[in-house]
Write a protein that binds this DNA or RNA. Structure first.
Lengths: 313, 313
DNA sequence: CATGACCATCAGGGTAACTGATGATCAACG
DNA sequence: CGTTGATCATCAGTTACCCTGATGGTCATG
């Protein structure tokens, strides 16, 4: 078994082969390709060594060359290969301009609900054929791990990350007190007034930890009576009178008539929403644009009016 | 538009690319491929110039390299291309051994009926996956033209051809007189006895011309009352009493009880059946084998007993 | 027989590719 | 916190290859 080895095949060979098959003579093919007749002769000879057999019969004299059966057999696949390579080149161009591509983005509940629709909407406008794969998790560090392992191109994250990740800050998301309407008088509520009050919250995740740490450093030991990672459930429990909740503003529906929002005094340090990617990792043009769009869209949240001002003024 | 041009792409590039993507480091890929790490580094750099973008992120230090989005996008097509090239190589091997292929053969009625079934049968045994395309014509020079133009790889022909074609002689096919049983007494018939006798024959083709030329050079001007190129029809007309016929032995059914065969005195020069191909044209291995098989099979016809010996003895 | 069109081959110069060595980077480890 | 080891980039040098230009051989044409 003499397995023909085409590891040394070059596109030049196939281009020359195709040209000669089309033109009928080495000279015309050479002229067309900007080579010397000698060069084409050597290229074809080289290809014939590679495939271990003559590809053209050279009748001699002024008669055109003709494909041998082997050449005839190779011509189709050769042309198909050339076409395929051309298609790959075009596809790379489309990739570079963002006409085609794929991007995998990590996200979590509140961002999915409030921010992502705006970003995705603009992405679909700009890159209608780019696949946007979303990966939502509210678990502890699942997004970080996935981002670190390369599964995600980008991820929305809470807080600033340095070292492993690079990031762009999007907006600050203040913590607010969520209560039943009328439970507290409109306006700020002092943290001290929340001592012993039954509270609803999330399981330990970066956001919840930030929250609790803030409360404790203010001297308050919160009294959690229920924990769930579903933001809607938290609000529902508040409405049901199970307790109050300290939540990032983005996690609640400000217009929900069943709840009332209050600033806290002293205010907890806001959580910072950023979009991050692996340090040193090349971002695709599409991913870069995604980041920019996220930044632009986030101005809406950075500048949003705090809801209690309108309602309590 | 900066159309990525992959004319300078070489398989080496893709092999190296694939190896690095698999192995994770340039060094391991180099070792696997029998190159230096430096060589792989330069090959990848070269490929990156071709596609105008980094394919790997090099984190530095002992960490493995990782595909950039561009590299990720290219990897699939690159591997597919490699697979395709490998498949082409295997296909060429199969072509060389005759496992796959195609052969176009010109033929004419009598050969189709008597010789070809034997040849094709053996070909199908030896090369079950080779396509055998047959092209039958009894017209004047249609086979010669098709063979000369390259449409046919091989063709059965009458007579010896030199110059334009190369050929192998297969067997000699003597002319016999076809009559109704009992019309002449068994045994040879003198040409002189055929003067004025109504005759059935073919239209002008190489075989018929050979026939008529032979008769005329013996001083006989044949009296054709009907011409058809269908051998069966010729025999049928003889049976019907329209006339007698001078035919190559291969064109009649010796065992047909409705006719009787007679040698001619003096005998006409036999037609020579050969198989021919364009001079200087490379024959595929399958075509070469076809010729050999045709030669072997033809021994049957070269050595066949002349039918009148058995019947008239 | 001369001409012209064609391909193969040769010698050469130039370029590209591989090798081997060196330097820079960074994780891991003590 | 320095040392070690693994990694890739780069450099210089050599080799190998490819293209050019010239030459010679072949063959149809007139």
């Amino acid at each position: 078994m003499v397995m023909t080895n085409l590891r040394d095949l070059e596109m030049r060979h196939l281009v020359a082969f195709d040209a000669v098959a089309n033109e009928g003579t080495f000279g015309k093919a050479a002229e067309k390709l900007g080579y010397t007749q000698s060069a084409i002769s050597q290229q074809i000879a080289s290809l014939e060594r590679l495939v271990d057999g003559k590809l053209f019969d050279r009748p001699g004299g002024p008669r055109p060359v003709e494909l041998t059966p082997l050449g005839h057999h190779l011509l189709g696949p050769a042309r198909e290969l050339l076409a395929r390579v051309g298609a790959i080149g075009e596809d790379l161009d489309r990739f570079r301009t963002g006409e085609v591509g794929q991007i995998t983005v990590g996200t979590y509940q509140s961002v999915s609900a409030k921010v992502l629709p705006l970003v995705v909407g603009r992405m679909r406008q700009e890159f209608p054929d780019v696949q946007i794969l979303l990966y939502e998790s509210d678990l502890d560090d699942e997004l970080d791990v996935a981002l670190g392992s390369g599964e995600l191109d980008l991820s929305f994250v809470v807080g600033d990350w340095t070292g492993q990740f690079e990031s762009r800050r999007l907006f600050e998301d203040p913590f607010v007190l969520v209560t039943r309407p009328g439970e507290y008088k409109p306006g700020p509520v002092r943290l001290a007034d929340l001592a012993e009050v039954p509270m609803v919250g999330q399981h330990a995740n970066s956001c919840q930890l930030l929250n609790e740490t803030g409360l404790r450093s203010a001297g308050l030991e919160p009294n959690y009576v229920f924990r769930t990672n579903d933001n809607g459930t938290v609000s529902a429990m508040v409405k049901a009178g199970l307790g109050v909740a300290v939540m990032p503003l983005l996690c609640v529906e400000p217009d929900d008539p069943g709840i009332e929002l209050h600033p806290l005094r002293p205010a907890l340090e806001s959580r910072r929403v950023s979009i991050a990617w692996r340090a040193g990792r090349t971002l695709s043009p599409v991913a870069q644009r995604f980041v920019e769009i996220a930044v632009e869209v986030s101005e809406v949240f950075a500048e949003r009016p705090l809801p209690w001002k309108g309602r309590a003024a």
